Simulated assay, not measured.
Amino acid sequence: MNTRAVLAAFGLTGMLATLPSHASDMRFTGTAKADDGAVLYTERHQVAGHCEGDLFRPVKHEVAYLEPDSDQPFATKNLGYEKSVIRPTVEFAQPDFNERMEIRYPQPRQLTIRWNTPGSGDDIENFSVTFTDQTVVDAGFDNFVRQNWEAVLAGKSIEFRFLGPTRGEHYAFVLEPVENREIDAEQVLQIRPTGMVLRFLVDPIVLGYNENGALTDYLGLTNIRKNADENYTAHIRYSVETYPDCELTP
């Protein structure tokens, strides 16, 4: 039984609001493989945050992408969750293709995207996008799953909007349980578009989670570029090295 359940049993959940927060972090590693089992790259994740009561609240998330047998990253991503855990600020760079992307929130209901497109580095796309409370950005999907953990455990489907940053628009998606023979996890889910046209263009992303609410598998299109025209599609398996001092899920 987790801390929240213990407090609830004694009618003390109201105390959570007055409990002080303390710093904590989480570290995990992902290995991305192609269909033939070849390792494409690895991901090193470090998430800094704090415990609010007994629940982990991420603040900063750093990712380094490394080729096999290399200690030097070929791409990096920095995420900031100060304003929202499902809509982080984003700084992504893959220098081999002169690609860089930044996502910011200059206004409460507006985000901006600045994308140095692959190639010479001289072509820049700028977007300004309005959004709703149900809009999810980048790795915010992971926290969105945890926010809806009770619904996930109950097998419910949850509708949301997901940002397509290279198109400067967000689209209707659904998070739902699914069966997949490639993923062996406590909870197997997928996020897929619900619009008729996008359903034919975008394959679902399949996710695995363990009983602690930690991501174990990601199967689908990645944000790492294979060449100037396409990104890798991979099965990424995650291993947690350090859990935070509090729960990941309510």
Rank of each mutant, 00 (worst) to 15 (best):
G195I: 01
F141N: 00
E159R: 10
G164I: 13
E182K: 14
L153E: 14
T194G: 09
F141A: 00
P118F: 06
D184H: 13
T166F: 08
L163N: 03
L189A: 06
F144K: 00
V178I: 11
S128L: 04
G168D: 00
Y171C: 05
Q187W: 09
P118E: 07
R146Q: 05
G140F: 03
E150P: 00
F162K: 02
P177K: 05
F144E: 02
Q190R: 15
E125I: 06
E150V: 12
E182P: 05
V174K: 03
V197K: 12
G140H: 06
P118C: 01
F141W: 14
N126E: 15
V136Y: 09
F131V: 10
D123I: 11
W149I: 11
R114F: 05
S157K: 14
E179M: 09
D122K: 12
V137R: 02
F162A: 08
A172W: 01
D122T: 13
E182L: 15
F173E: 03
F141T: 06
A139K: 05
F160K: 00
Q187G: 02
D133C: 07
R161Y: 14
R167I: 08
E125L: 12
F131C: 04
N180L: 02
W149R: 04
G195F: 07
E169Q: 12
R181N: 15
G140W: 00
D133V: 08
T132E: 14
F144A: 00
A154L: 10
V188K: 01
V145Y: 02
E182M: 14
L189G: 04
Q134L: 09
E159H: 10
E182W: 10
I113Q: 04
E179P: 00
S128R: 11
P118G: 01
T132P: 05
L189Y: 03
A154C: 03
T135Q: 07
T132C: 00
M196G: 03
V152T: 00
R146E: 01
V137H: 01
I191D: 04
Y171E: 06
A139G: 02
T130L: 07
R181C: 03
L189E: 10
W115V: 01
N180S: 09
V137M: 03
F173W: 10
G140I: 01
P193Y: 08
P193D: 07
Q134E: 14
V137K: 02
E169F: 04
E179D: 15
T194K: 13
V137T: 08
T130S: 13
G164L: 13
E169M: 09
V145W: 03
D133S: 14
Q147A: 02
E186L: 07
V136I: 14
R181S: 15
E186N: 12
R161E: 08
Y171A: 00
Q147V: 06
I183W: 08
T112K: 11
S157R: 12
T194W: 13
Q134Y: 02
D184W: 05
T112A: 11
S120C: 01
G121H: 11
E150A: 14
R181I: 01
V188I: 13
I124V: 15
G168M: 01
